[in-house]
Amino acid sequence: MTMRWTWHGGGVAAARAHFGGAPESWLDLSTGINPHAWPGASEQAIDWRALPDEQGLRALEQAAADHFGVAADHVCALPGTEVGLRLVGTLLDGSVRHASPAYRTHGAMVQGAAPVDLDHLGDADGQTLILANPNNPDGRLHGLADLVALLDRRGPDGWLVVDEAFADCHPASSLGPFIADDRRLMLLRSFGKFFGLAGLRLGFLVAPRAVIARVRDRLGAWPVSAAAIAIGTAAYRDSGWIGAMRDQLGHEAQALDALLMRCSHQPMGQSPLFRLIDTPDAMALFERLAGQAILTRPFEAQPRWLRIGLPSDAAGLSRLEQALRHG
Rank of each mutant, 00 (worst) to 15 (best):
G94K: 04
G122Y: 03
C169I: 06
R86P: 07
L205S: 06
N133T: 06
D117P: 01
F204L: 10
Y103S: 12
L87Q: 01
V206P: 10
D182L: 11
R201F: 15
R140F: 09
G155I: 08
R216C: 07
A165W: 02
L129V: 12
E164Y: 02
G143E: 10
R218K: 15
G122T: 03
G192I: 11
R189H: 13
R154K: 12
L78R: 02
Q127Y: 04
L141P: 05
S174Y: 04
L121Q: 02
L131W: 01
H142N: 07
A221Y: 09
G139M: 09
G84E: 00
I179R: 11
V211R: 06
P79L: 10
F178C: 12
L187N: 04
A77Q: 08
G203S: 02
L92E: 03
A165N: 04
A113Y: 00
P177W: 13
A114K: 00
G122K: 02
R201G: 10
A132P: 08
R140P: 06
F195R: 09
F204C: 08
G139Q: 07
G94Q: 03
R140H: 14
T90A: 09
D119R: 15
A149T: 15
G112C: 01
L129W: 14
F178I: 06
V215M: 13
G139P: 05
V116C: 00
R214S: 08
V116F: 00
D138P: 02
G112W: 01
D93H: 14
G158W: 02
R214Y: 07
C169S: 14
D168A: 15
A102P: 03
G89P: 02
H106Q: 12
T105C: 12
G139F: 14
R153F: 03
F191N: 05
T105N: 11
A108G: 13
D93C: 13
A145N: 11
Q127K: 10
G89C: 02
A114H: 01
G112M: 01
G80W: 00
A221L: 11
L121K: 00
